[in-house]
């Protein structure tokens, strides 16, 4: 599915990367634990409620391009700046992690494992 479809499914807003919403993604991973994110092999999308600069750094190191923040979390200006340097897309969703993942799964986004 495209990032645009993800945004529509989640009633989300785009904090960074509006011009990249036609990007196609197949899999996602959801976690608030960055230690787990660093063990992933390949996935472009992270769903998380952890909203701090280390979320961006971790995704940079783990080669994740798209972060979906849940529970109404908004990235700070510092986070957006760092994400912009690394060509990321930041999406903000008002729903809980459980609801966001449920909706994305129902819409066809696959789990990593």
């Amino acid at each position: 599915m495209t990032l645009k479809e993800i945004v529509d499914t989640l009633g989300a807003t785009v904090a960074l990367g509006q011009e990249r919403l036609d990007m196609e993604v197949e899999h996602a991973f959801a976690s608030d634990l960055m230690s787990d994110v660093l063990t992933l092999k390949d996935t472009p999308v992270l769903v998380t409620g952890l909203c701090n600069v280390q979320t961006i750094r971790t995704c940079d190191m783990a080669t994740l391009d798209v972060i979906i923040f849940v529970r109404g979390k908004k990235p700070t200006d510092d986070m957006v700046e760092l994400a912009e340097e690394n060509d990321m897309v930041l999406i903000c969703c008002p729903y809980s992690m459980f609801k966001a993942c449920g909706l994305l799964y129902q819409a066809g986004l696959k789990p990593l494992y």
Partner: peptide, 15 residues
Amino acid sequence: DMGFGAGMGLPNMQK
């Protein structure tokens, strides 16, 4: 609170 401390660091370095 920063998302670390799960005891995965050294094992993940090893991998």
